[in-house]
């Protein structure tokens, strides 16, 4: 270009101004409209999705017109209502849930012991990693024949397979969570003079809580699935059957609407636990603490 003169920005005059009043600017903070507020509620949005699914189901099933293969939404709901009020459905649900809670609780307790050992010693870590790697891919149902052989036909067998399905998922996530606790937090905890179990309880568990919660959720889903499947396989446990047995029984009698009602019940319980129990825990802990959005 013209000459060797380096290009410089123009020198402009300086100035100082006073910032304007917020009132003149207007929309600094405006309340949201009713529609915006309603659509912000997660529950409303989710219920809307459920509604759309139900309508689609009803339309498809009416068009198919084959209640033996695919009953309509309203037939299923009627069956669900009948089975709950007059029939044995609620009793079956209670039987299943009781067994489930026993197995789930035991699984979590064992996982807690395992992970505590794993964080305190290196042998423990290797032990847990090896066991998890071995047993996590093993479907709980595959252990059922063995469980029946050892514990007989009944609740102990069910609890055994549920523990198997909960334990590894919870232990894996909890241990992973412990490992990812930041060095700074660890040092802060040790700085307070915390050691051993107190250190695990006061620092590691809360700090790893997002992972632990994930583990609990996965464990819950695994346990629920395992239980229903196990009940389908060998039906009645000691006195009264569970939800899986209810489904199996009605399929044998070709009461398809009741089979659907049983499945819907499984879904409803799953949704309730997820959206009420786990969500409440989440809101009161990890969200409040800013560990999760």
């Amino acid at each position: 270009m013209a000459g060797a003169e380096p290009r410089l920005p123009p020198v402009r005059p300086e100035f100082e101004v006073r910032p304007g009043e917020a009132g003149q600017i207007g929309d600094v903070a405006r309340p949201l409209s009713a529609w915006e507020r309603i659509s912000n509620i997660t529950l409303v949005r989710r219920l809307f999705i459920l509604l759309v699914l139900a309508v689609a189901w009803q339309i498809y099933a009416s068009w198919l017109d084959n209640p033996l293969m695919f009953p309509t939404f309203d037939e299923t709901m009627t069956a669900l209502w009948d089975a709950s009020i007059k029939g044995p459905l609620l009793e079956r649900v209670w039987t299943s849930i009781r067994v489930l809670l026993l197995g789930y609780g035991a699984g979590i307790a064992i996982a807690a012991v395992f992970t505590t050992i794993a964080v305190s010693t290196r042998v423990g870590t290797d032990f847990l990693s090896t066991l998890t790697a071995m047993f996590n891919p093993l479907p709980a149902i595959a252990l059922l024949p063995l469980a029946l052989l050892w514990f007989g036909l009944g609740i102990p067998s069910l609890i055994f397979v549920i523990i198997h399905s909960v334990l590894w998922a919870v232990a894996l996530n909890t241990h992973g969570g412990f490992l990812s606790v930041s060095e700074t937090l660890r040092m802060a905890g040790q700085n307070y003079g915390l050691r051993g179990l107190r250190y695990v309880a006061y620092i590691l568990i809360p700090a790893a809580f997002p992972s632990i919660l994930t583990g609990l959720k996965i464990g819950w889903a695994f346990a629920w699935r395992t239980l229903i499947a196990a009940e389908l396989v060998f039906g009645v446990s000691s006195r009264s059957g569970g939800l899986g047995w209810f489904i199996f029984e009605n399929r044998n009698q070709l009461e398809t609407a009741y089979v659907f009602a049983g499945l819907v019940m499984v879904i409803i319980i799953g949704l309730l636990v997820e959206s009420v129990v786990f969500r409440t825990i989440e809101i009161r802990t990890v969200r409040k603490w800013g560990m999760q959005r």
Partner: peptide, 18 residues
């Protein structure tokens, strides 16, 4: 480590978030 020597770290995540 002990509470007779209190540390202040550079990282902001030294506070217990819960």
């Amino acid at each position: 480590p002990g509470p007779d020597r209190m540390m202040v770290f550079q990282e902001f995540d030294q506070l217990l978030p819960w």
